[in-house]
Nucleic acid binder design. Structure first.
Lengths: 343, 343
DNA sequence: CGGTACTTCGAAAACGTTTTCGATTATATA
DNA sequence: TATATAATCGAAAACGTTTTCGAAGTACCG
């Protein structure tokens, strides 16, 4: 039982391959009679066009590539979700790769996708990456390309982001509004733009409220893990016993902080208020429930794909496309870890 | 700047396409001299074979399809992780689709993948699915195929599973060993095999310990969510105030239970011991830390891909392949939610 | 009847690769 | 020198589709 082809149908019907192909694609220059005959035989033979041949002929595969730092991450799996769903709705399939936050892997994977000749690429940079050669290569080759979340600001391509600076500012402002006077920041690695921006947002909020910035109150994560959150919580409380607020780069780290404080008997939010970032699902089920910043992950996926789709359509038609940057809204989610009664 | 082809290289070097192709694939019947010339020119032109043409010619795309019920799920994203990594190591790419736990979508997606002519399919069934037609179609077409976790027992294909019955038995036995006498079970939907098996394991553990089974103590989730966990926790404690143990189908539900009990002031594990299933990451950071059953999700992904790879290799060579079932080990992870001092 | 217009079809090229099978030349053997 | 062997190459078919362009036939109108 081999796969049916146009040739087979043509032979059985005593007509040409051309006509069969046209009949199936509803071309106007084929009579209703033959059209019906072709369609019914095609159905009977369970015909479906050989996508390999279609790809070769049309030079597109209706497949896009997606590279992210880590799949097992609430934020990223939500983005994947958004992208995969939206892609399917539009007849595209998604190939997923993860860079494990390393530049070397990321480069290999970009090359892989280019060689696979995917119709477009969506990507969130690893912490080690920036506007490196592999990114430039994608753009030089004019492959439709969208970056989201962890972007390289200088790259000439579409981007989907949140305003990390503003979001971080609002988070810290919320702590201050709740009476915090000495706020530590557990920041992300030095390289990624969003880690930098959140740090700037933190500083600006302090400045705005006339709280002097103290570099000693800033702790830098290397891997942005739960364990680092725990470790920094311990260190912070040792080095600054009068700390009363912590803004963590992401919920995972904030949860680490909560975990350590819970174990160490430090009261949240009475002694220290904590706010995270991303609205990771876990943050609403931990005790105390974690205040955080909502990051519209699913919408980010949807937006990213739609931007890419637009560029892919232009690319196909040969009309020029100007990259856009979409900035999605965030808002502070107030939960137990930052509400003080006595403020 | 068009893509380089074999033809281009051949023309520039004044040799045939055949020779160029052979040179690049290191065939023995091409002289070292021309081989060098070809390779260096290929590098200069940044040549990479057109995968569309290669696919058409070789009838394989080095791409597999993966259908899962939900991406945003710690267990599944871990499996994806394992599959994607292992696939990449072996030169395969992975297309991901999610069925959202619906049979209709799942069917469409299977068809999509078949039409895309992926080299193989890995899949975890939606709760609505069983040994339905679309599954049989994959097998009839002799497409390499592996099911994992949520499988259809009757399907003639390779499977990667855990022994849910045994694992559930051990979980409940652990509760009993810690002094529980009246244990409720929040089970999953009626259809999926693993939900049935865990229920059987629960019953067997009671039986083994001469605890009479009471159907009233079994609660059935529809969507297996955090919210259902909370709701059932409330219902259970209302209907059976003397309950002292709960075995939940999965950590997400168990966390819901913990969340409600925490809010309601019910002491865990003093009044009620709770054990979940899957060792979801969150279970170790919630208060109290949740006892659970370790489910080797990453290994499941790796095993699934390797089984598929084996079948794909046989398929290519035309040698017969007999489906295998791999059963991975689980073990109970004891944390705070189930340790009684006074037992 | 001659010309125009419309309908319906198919030949053939193209996409870029892989692989089979001879052909040709050079080298070794008898 | 004749013959067997090895080394090196290339023509051509094949994978299955899409699309251009022209051919053939039919109908219509003046």
């Amino acid at each position: 039982m081999k796969e049916a082809t146009l040739k087979e149908i043509a032979e059985k019907l005593g007509i040409s391959i051309t006509t069969v192909s046209k009949a199936l694609k509803n071309y106007p220059d084929v009579s209703l009679k033959t059209k019906d005959a072709v369609i019914s035989l095609a159905k009977k033979l369970n015909y479906s066009p050989n996508s390999f041949a279609v790809n070769l002929r049309t030079k597109e595969s209706k497949t896009i590539g997606l590279i992210i730092p880590e799949i097992v991450h609430h934020f990223f799996s939500n983005v994947i979700n958004g992208i995969v769903d939206e892609a399917e709705k539009n007849g595209y399939l998604v190939i997923i790769l993860q860079s494990n936050e390393t530049l070397a892997l990321e480069k290999k994977q970009v090359e892989l996708l280019i060689n696979k000749r995917v119709d477009g690429i969506i990507m969130s940079l690893s912490n080690e990456s920036n506007n490196d050669d592999h990114i430039k290569e994608i753009i030089n080759r004019k492959i439709p390309f969208v970056m989201f979340d962890k972007i390289a600001k200088l790259s000439k391509c579409s981007k989907v982001i949140i305003n990390d600076q503003k979001a971080a500012f609002n988070a810290v402002q919320h702590l201050i509004d709740n009476g915090c006077k000495k706020i530590a920041h557990i920041r992300g690695p030095l390289n990624p733009q969003n880690s930098i921006d959140r740090f700037i947002g933190y500083k600006k909020a302090l400045e705005k409220n006339n709280i002097p910035f103290d570099a000693k109150l800033v702790y830098t994560c290397e891997h942005v893990t739960f364990e680092e959150g725990r470790a920094f919580a311990e260190q912070i409380i040792k080095e600054h016993s009068d700390i009363d607020g912590i803004f963590a780069i992401t919920d995972l780290v904030a949860v680490g902080v909560l975990s350590y404080f819970n174990d160490a008997g430090i009261k949240i939010p009475e002694q220290v208020s904590v706010i995270g970032f991303s609205n990771w699902f876990m943050s609403q089920v931990i005790t105390p429930k974690l205040s955080t910043v909502d990051q519209p992950s699913h919408a980010m996926g949807v937006e990213s794909f739609n931007l890419l789709l637009e560029e892919m359509n232009c690319h196909r038609e040969g009309i020029p496309f100007t990259p856009r940057t979409v900035e999605l809204d965030t808002h502070v989610i107030i939960r137990e870890s930052s509400i003080r009664v006595n403020s």
